[in-house]
Amino acid sequence: MDRLLSIVRRLRDPEHGCSWDCKQDFRSLIPCTLEESYEVCEAIEKGNFDELREELGDLLLQVVFHSTIAEEEGLFDFEAVAGEICDKLVRRHPHVFGNVTYASDEERVKAWEAAKSDERRRKAEKDESGTSSILDGLTSSLPSLMFASKMQRRASIHGFDWTEAAPVFDKVEEELEELRDAWKSGHQAHVREELGDLLFVTVNLARHLQVESETALREASRKFESRFRYIEEQVARSGREFDDCPLEELDAFWDEAKVSLAGKSPAVSTD
């Protein structure tokens, strides 16, 4: 770890470092940080652990890079970052690092959320307003499905939720009908609003069905990709261009793909 810190500091040296590394700041590194996070996820999904090791290193570099910039600006250093997460983990696990015992996983989760709620309250006390919300601390820059799920889960912990999945199905049907009415009205802004409501309640349904909506959509997208690539292969074998094939034939290839690829894990594109 010390070697990595030393290398990044050298790269940031105004006289002997790298001009590109020296120009970077917190904001300019946002795309890199996001990209490295997604590449870690992709390596996990592919089951490629050599690649995972490499991508975790790239992600760690981003943490060290940001920490080094903060150190240069007198804000904090890597040691403070590591110390912060260590303190948080100990604080949120009194059943491991203390004498607390929980009767069930449900009780443990409630205690975890209570600890997080207390942290949010203490942060709010430092703000000028001094007010806090149950929804404080949610990262709005998360992928939309994940953000919606986290917000719903936070509200659910405090009792604002359906008690079972059945009425959520009813709500999905209600929102679908409202979207259909908006579409018939021809009012695009209304269509967008109702579509958002439908997506939001679908995330709620996924949560009640114990499914991560973000993961489900990624898997569905990869499944579409695999089937579409199968269609492309069949068209190529026929010696024609994709655009020359009638939709009916493409649909037939799609049905073939569903049978041929059934039970196979969709390949993740490296494009």
Rank of each mutant, 00 (worst) to 15 (best):
V8N: 07
R12P: 03
D13A: 06
P14A: 06
H16I: 08
C22W: 11
K23W: 05
Q24I: 00
S28D: 00
S28N: 05
P31M: 01
P31L: 02
C32I: 07
C32G: 14
T33R: 08
S37P: 00
A43V: 07
V64L: 00
F65Q: 12
F65L: 15
H66L: 15
H66T: 13
T68V: 00
I69R: 02
E73R: 03
E73F: 01
E73I: 03
G74F: 00
F78K: 01
G83S: 02
L89C: 08
F97M: 04
G98W: 03
N99H: 11
R108D: 05
K110Y: 09
E119F: 11
E125R: 12
E125Q: 13
D127T: 15
E128Y: 14
G130R: 13
T131W: 11
T131L: 14
S133C: 09
L138T: 11
S140F: 12
S140Q: 08
S141P: 06
L142H: 01
L142F: 09
P143A: 03
S144T: 11
S144L: 15
M146Y: 06
A148L: 15
M151K: 14
R153T: 12
R153C: 08
R154E: 08
H158F: 13
H158N: 13
D161T: 15
W162K: 09
W162T: 04
P167H: 05
D170H: 11
V172R: 02
V172E: 02
E174Q: 14
E175Y: 04
E175D: 13
E177D: 14
K184I: 11
K184R: 12
S185Y: 04
A189K: 11
V191G: 04
L195S: 08
D197M: 05
V203Q: 00
N204I: 09
R207H: 09
T215A: 09
A220W: 07
S221A: 12
K223D: 15
F224M: 08
R227I: 09
E232W: 05
E233V: 07
Q234R: 15
V235I: 09
R240I: 06
E249W: 11
L250W: 02
A252M: 10
F253W: 11
W254I: 01
E256H: 08
E256L: 06
V259H: 12
L261C: 02
K264A: 12
P266L: 04
S269T: 12
